[in-house]
Amino acid sequence: MKIVKCNWHRKGYTLFFIILILFFIQGCSLRLITKYDEKTEEAIFVSTRMVDQFYGNLFETDEEKRQYAKYSEKYVEVEAQLNELVLRNKVRVLNKDSTDIAESILELWRKYKARHKEKDTYKTGVARLDKKRFERIFSYAVRAEGAKKPTENN
């Protein structure tokens, strides 16, 4: 008859180390997004303010006096700011969602600019809808950047 020795003490050490590793892993977090950047958040607010001022000035002008030429310089200024926002997001690794949001904002800005240039007017109802759309998208951008802020746990 063969006697089988069971090395329970070795199995006990293995189990102990597995449990110890699990406790360490539980305290760690895996981050698959970029870190919060205060300057990017500030750039979002600056861009928001510029777009808001653009529409504020537009609403202060009578509809029949809203020719594209009066606003072309402001379009260029805002577009430059939005290009900066897109670039700021693109150069940060693991930042695809925020980059997509910034690119959407820029794409909309260019679309509305082209429409204004083509029609050479900007109807109040259309402008209100466009402004509301920008407000929603900028809100998403701010929340996306704010979600990257470190919490107490990480």
Rank of each mutant, 00 (worst) to 15 (best):
2 K>N: 07
2 K>M: 08
5 K>Y: 15
7 N>M: 04
10 R>C: 04
11 K>I: 08
13 Y>N: 14
13 Y>F: 10
14 T>E: 12
15 L>Q: 00
16 F>G: 01
16 F>V: 00
18 I>T: 13
19 I>K: 03
21 I>R: 11
21 I>V: 13
23 F>P: 05
23 F>H: 07
24 F>E: 03
26 Q>V: 09
26 Q>N: 14
27 G>A: 06
28 C>N: 12
28 C>S: 07
28 C>L: 14
29 S>W: 06
30 L>T: 03
31 R>N: 13
32 L>H: 03
32 L>F: 14
33 I>M: 12
33 I>H: 06
34 T>Q: 06
34 T>L: 03
34 T>G: 04
35 K>C: 05
36 Y>K: 01
37 D>V: 01
37 D>T: 02
40 T>S: 04
40 T>E: 05
40 T>C: 08
46 V>W: 08
47 S>G: 12
47 S>P: 13
47 S>K: 08
49 R>D: 14
50 M>T: 01
51 V>E: 02
51 V>D: 00
52 D>L: 01
52 D>W: 01
55 Y>A: 01
55 Y>S: 00
56 G>V: 00
56 G>Q: 05
57 N>M: 10
57 N>D: 11
59 F>E: 08
62 D>A: 01
62 D>F: 07
62 D>W: 02
63 E>D: 07
65 K>T: 04
65 K>W: 09
67 Q>E: 07
67 Q>Y: 04
68 Y>I: 04
69 A>G: 02
69 A>E: 09
70 K>F: 07
74 K>H: 00
76 V>E: 13
77 E>P: 11
77 E>M: 15
79 E>H: 13
80 A>Q: 07
80 A>D: 11
80 A>E: 05
82 L>R: 01
83 N>W: 12
84 E>G: 13
84 E>Q: 14
85 L>N: 08
85 L>A: 04
86 V>I: 15
88 R>K: 15
89 N>R: 13
89 N>G: 07
89 N>M: 06
89 N>Q: 05
90 K>H: 11
90 K>Y: 07
90 K>W: 08
91 V>E: 09
93 V>A: 09
94 L>V: 06
94 L>G: 03
94 L>E: 10
95 N>H: 02
96 K>G: 00
97 D>Y: 03
97 D>R: 00
97 D>C: 03
97 D>P: 00
98 S>M: 12
99 T>W: 04
99 T>Q: 13
101 I>R: 02
101 I>Y: 05
102 A>M: 00
103 E>Y: 07
105 I>N: 05
106 L>I: 15
107 E>D: 15
107 E>K: 15
107 E>C: 04
108 L>S: 13
109 W>K: 07
109 W>I: 06
109 W>Q: 08
110 R>Y: 06
112 Y>P: 00
114 A>G: 03
114 A>D: 14
116 H>T: 01
117 K>C: 02
118 E>N: 12
119 K>Q: 13
120 D>Y: 03
124 T>H: 09
126 V>A: 11
130 D>T: 08
131 K>N: 14
133 R>M: 04
133 R>H: 14
134 F>C: 05
134 F>T: 03
134 F>P: 04
134 F>A: 09
136 R>N: 09
139 S>Y: 14
141 A>Y: 05
143 R>Y: 03
144 A>K: 12
147 A>F: 12
149 K>R: 06
150 P>V: 14
150 P>K: 15
151 T>H: 06
151 T>V: 10
151 T>Y: 10
152 E>I: 12
153 N>A: 10
153 N>R: 15
153 N>Y: 15
153 N>S: 15
